[in-house]
């Protein structure tokens, strides 16, 4: 019985956070973390539950393919996936399984359970996602710095133009434009697969570039704004060199909006990974999710929605932590 344990633990977490807040005051860090963790679990359970009932409430399923199955085979399949029990029993059992991190068997890839698919594909997706974030920073940071330092001059105009173009070229359009020259023309990069490190370049670039462009614009605006602030003037008055003034003071202020953007950017990169993994034949979460959705493999899609909820909640949590570390005036909510 894992589900009751999970629910009791969740309630305990909320209670502890409440107790801690009353004892240690509103700004207590541990209470904030406990509450945050409890909300992450609650959100995940809520998304799972809502998706579960939506799924059960709609007619149609993976078995009504072109070819009608024999009634006894279908009955056996339904029994195997527990589709013959009352809905709320199914839900309780699935929550129970979820608490043991068991997401059940996939309905289309029948040899695999959902968590087997997850274990295989999560590292791949994380690799692509990390590479995309790296591209985003690699493109956004220098471009934004250059534009802000030379504000109003031609490097600024050029960098801003690149940023504007990048922002208006969605991942799926970018892929179509980059593949012909880089893959077919010059033959530098493979068209699909992750067998070699070179295979990682194009998918992550397509994924990261639009966000790099937005990051550049945010950094430019933020840096121009902070360079104009009094504490930067104080730093200069102290006799600090220009490099130190920028790296230690101005950039710090400009990074706050940039880090605040990181949360939505990671969510966006996760979304974009659906396209990129689908296009480049990368066996990650995204391609499985799209496949699951197209073939109506509900347990797989459900499991992946749950995982995505967790991933996004955790990444926003980390971004909030970064923000707090970066700007002491921000408090953990």
């Amino acid at each position: 019985m894992s589900a009751p344990l999970l629910l009791i633990g969740l309630a305990g977490l909320f209670a502890w956070a409440h107790w801690r807040t009353r004892r240690a005051g509103k700004n207590d860090r541990w209470a904030a973390h406990a509450r945050r963790l409890a909300w992450v679990i609650t959100t995940t359970l809520a998304v799972y539950t809502a998706s579960f009932f939506l799924m059960r409430a709609t007619p149609g399923g993976p078995f009504d393919g072109d070819r009608a199955l024999a009634p006894e085979i279908e009955a056996r399949l339904r029994a195997r996936y527990q589709l013959d029990r009352p809905v709320w029993v199914q839900w309780w059992n699935s929550i129970d399984a979820l608490a043991r991190l068991d997401l059940g068997p996939s309905m289309v890839l029948r040899e695999f359970t959902v968590q087997e698919i997850l274990v295989q594909s999560l590292p791949t997706s994380l690799l692509v996602g990390t590479a995309a974030v790296a591209w985003m920073i690699l493109i956004g940071l220098p471009l934004g710095l250059l534009a802000a330092r030379r504000a109003g001059q031609w490097p600024d105009a050029a960098a801003s133009l690149v940023a504007a173009l990048g922002q208006s070229l969605p991942t799926f359009v970018l892929a179509g434009l980059l593949i012909p020259p880089l893959v077919f023309g010059l033959g530098w990069l493979p068209a699909a697969g992750l067998e070699s490190p070179a295979g990682l370049v194009l998918p992550s670039l397509c994924l990261g570039l639009p966000y790099g462009a937005q990051l550049a614009r945010l950094l430019r605006a933020g840096l121009i704004n902070t360079l104009d602030q009094d504490f930067v003037r104080t730093a200069r008055a102290k006799g600090l060199g220009e490099a130190r003034v920028i790296s230690r003071y101005a950039l710090r202020g400009a990074l706050v909006p940039a880090i605040a953007f990181l949360g939505p950017a990671i969510a966006g990169i996760l979304t974009g990974s659906l396209v990129v993994e689908n296009l480049f034949g990368i066996p990650g979460l995204g391609s499985h999710f799209v496949q699951g959705a197209l073939s109506r493999d509900y347990p797989l899609a459900l499991g992946l929605v749950t995982i995505y909820t967790l991933l996004i909640s955790i990444s926003t949590w980390i971004c909030d932590l970064l923000l707090v570390a970066l700007d002491p005036r921000i408090e953990l909510g």
Partner: peptide, 24 residues
């Protein structure tokens, strides 16, 4: 001025809140 500011000449500004870095 770059050679002497902060070493031989120092300045105190009007608004101490904005003159100090909020991040450090």
């Amino acid at each position: 001025a770059a050679r002497v500011r902060g070493r031989r000449i120092a300045i105190v500004f009007q608004d101490p809140l904005s003159a100090l870095s909020p991040y450090h």
